[in-house]
């Protein structure tokens, strides 16, 4: 007891202080979204709301286009995630398993594309999408997000795939599977933690993306949450703080849910006990 006494208490205090500092903006967002309009700018500010109200949430859901933006965001994020994971899984597998000229160079190139600041790509990408006739659609956002999520996804999955013993695939093929069969039966389950990490990364990136959504979509019916909420609640003359906070809380919910469900997969060791030696 004595050995762990004071230093342990101090260490815990410090840790909790850091947790509090980091989570304070989130707490403040939640508290503000629950306060009546009248309590917002009180001086001194109240840490806890005097009266808890859900009126901002109700107003957002019932009187604004919040749900339309929300569903747009879901469509864009899910579609991007599915597309990126599907392409990246196959790409990473190819980079790891097959020997062909320029394989290493290709892998490096993939990383280089990620190093390019995406902001310089906006205008060319916009012109390209216009020419393709898909500007101002949700699909244009899916394409745009895929272009910058894919390189990182391939890179991430490549390192996961490299950790899967080659013998597993060979064993499956000798056991009667085709190459694709072995891929689905053995490689995919082994790469699952990597696939989940990639999916979470892509989903969050697409969900929170603002710049491309702002530039590529100028039509209210195709707006996602990030741009939709800002155009709706923030004008040059007025900011709807309470509703903005409520919107922020509701925007965070899917991400938190996704994280909560997949967290154990993210941390679970993979390949353990697969092979010995």
């Amino acid at each position: 007891m004595r050995r762990f006494g004071w230093s342990r208490i101090l260490f815990n205090l410090l840790a909790w202080a850091i947790v509090f500092v980091v989570s304070f903006p989130l707490l403040w967002t939640i508290v503000t979204s629950l306060k009546p309009q009248t309590e917002l700018f009180l001086i001194p500010p109240s840490l806890l709301p005097g009266e808890v109200t859900f009126e901002h949430y109700a107003k957002l859901l019932l009187e604004t286009r919040f749900l339309a933006y929300f569903s747009n965001s879901v469509v864009v994020s899910v579609a991007t995630t599915v597309l990126v994971v599907a392409v990246a899984v196959l790409g990473a597998h190819s980079l790891v398993r097959f020997a062909y000229p320029g394989r290493e160079r290709l892998a490096q190139l993939v990383l280089f594309t990620y190093l390019l600041p995406s902001v310089v790509l906006i205008i060319p990408l916009y012109l390209l999408l216009v020419r393709m006739g898909i500007a101002n659609t949700l699909f244009s956002l899916v394409v745009a997000y895929t272009t910058f999520a894919l390189p990182f996804a391939v890179w991430l999955l490549r390192s996961f795939m490299a950790g899967i013993p080659q013998d597993l695939e060979a064993a499956a093929m000798v056991d009667g599977a085709s190459r694709m069969g072995a891929f689905f039966d053995v490689i995919l389950p082994q790469a699952l933690p990597g696939i989940i990490s990639t999916a979470v990364f892509t989903f969050i990136l697409a969900w929170n993306e603002y710049l491309f959504a702002l530039v590529l979509v100028n039509q209210d019916s195709s707006r996602t949450l990030t741009t939709g909420v800002i155009t709706m609640l923030v004008t040059s003359f007025h900011i709807e703080w309470s509703m903005l906070m409520a919107a922020s809380v509701m925007m965070s919910v899917p991400v938190i849910v996704v994280f909560a469900f997949l967290q154990k997969h993210l941390t679970r060791g993979f390949g353990a006990g697969a092979v010995k030696g």
Partner: peptide, 30 residues
Amino acid sequence: LPPAERDLAMVFQSYALYPHMTVAQNIEYP
């Protein structure tokens, strides 16, 4: 012929057991 059609069974140095399958599922796989 692809490996699947050669009607051979192989035991690997690393054993190459499928880690996500049980022993029964591993044996059953072929």
